[in-house]
């Protein structure tokens, strides 16, 4: 068994060394590839808060990923066409500023997560999975049937949005930005896990009744976790859209929800670096196996099957063992 701290350090080193190597050997595509993995990691770190800490199996996190994406798409679309979003009751214009877009994405995803969470948390188990899936599909079909923002074809943004002090068009700069966001999210989620809120949430996951008897509202704890989780995944959506300079309804699709969940499960549910590990493995498989065979999902399926059968803890669990008792 490897010490989890060493394992996490190796992942961090990998995230720092791969782009360094890619820059040195002039392989900009590798940077784009690992940026994709980092953005997926961020989305999965978001889901891990709901799934790992709160025990909420949400098959609708694509809603937040897509909302984040469309927040970027719509704002940038209006900025590049010099048209206003609204003229009444007050003028709202588009923007090409990333911090502003992220803020909008965070706000809208939090609102959406509050509403979806409020309704979905009345159920649990399979019903919770189904109702979150249903919300995902609602957003998916809505985005397809709304022609103003590209409908089924999606929206292309010609130039990547800007961040003060950086040239986001340079792959390494954009990678650095995404990596910083990922590290911030990881730091936040580690802090959250050890906070009284995180502990209470952990307890509520096991037994809602027990936390009620010590005066904690289990449902509210879960709702807050769901909102935080959705907001982080939404931020990842905005970054993902900017990475591709393209948004489409695919970001809302249930496959996207499934993929985010696969990252978490491959890596290890509830483990700090589980989502990152999962996303790195997924993107590697997608790249290398996808290059060999169009039907690479079959191998992904086999791989996933192996991980799930070998142990519940995902790759981190298999390599590092169970979480330490004296943490």
């Amino acid at each position: 068994m490897i010490n989890e701290k060493y394992f996490n350090s190796v992942i961090v080193l990998l995230l720092l060394l791969v782009p360094a190597w890619a820059t040195a050997s002039d392989e900009p595509f590798t940077i784009t590839l690992i940026t994709r993995a980092v953005v997926f990691s961020l989305a999965a770190v978001g889901l891990n808060i709901a799934l790992g800490l709160g025990g909420l199996v949400s098959l609708g996190h694509a809603v937040f990923f897509g909302l984040g994406g469309y927040a970027m798409g719509i704002l940038a679309f209006h900025a590049q066409t010099y048209s206003a979003l609204f003229e009444w009751p007050f003028l709202i214009e588009g923007t090409k500023s990333m911090p502003l877009i992220w803020l909008v994405a965070l706000i809208f995803c939090s609102i959406a997560a509050s509403l979806i969470g409020f309704l979905s948390l009345r159920t649990s188990g399979v019903y919770f999975i189904m109702i979150t899936l249903a919300f995902g599909q609602m957003f998916y079909f809505f985005s397809i049937s709304w022609p103003k923002y590209g409908g089924e074809d999606g929206l292309s943004i010609y130039v990547r949005n800007g961040f003060p002090g950086l040239n986001t068009l340079i792959p390494l700069h954009y990678y650095g930005l995404c990596l910083v966001m990922l590290f911030l999210a990881l730091w936040f989620s580690a802090r959250l896990k050890k906070s009284p809120f995180g502990l209470a949430l952990n307890a509520a996951r096991q037994s809602p009744e027990r936390v009620e008897t010590v005066g904690l509202n289990g449902k509210r704890l879960k709702l807050i976790a769901f909102v935080i989780s959705g907001a982080i995944t939404g931020l990842a959506g905005a970054l993902f859209a900017d990475l591709n300079r393209f948004v489409s309804p695919t970001m809302f699709s249930w496959q996207t929800s499934g993929e985010i969940m696969i990252f978490v499960i491959i890596g290890g549910v509830g483990r700090l670096f589980g989502p990152v590990t999962g996303a790195l493995v997924f993107v590697s498989l997608e790249h290398f196996l996808g290059g060999i065979n169009d039907y690479w999902h079959v191998y992904l399926g086999l791989f996933l099957l192996g991980i799930v059968l070998l142990g519940k803890g995902g790759l981190v669990g298999i390599l590092c063992g169970k979480e330490k008792i004296n943490a």
Partner: peptide, 16 residues
């Protein structure tokens, strides 16, 4: 019925 996955300290703090 303690919170099994939490440590002694965490069990106590979470209820405080």
């Amino acid at each position: 019925r303690c919170f099994h996955s939490l440590s002694v300290y965490e069990n106590l703090i979470s209820a405080h």
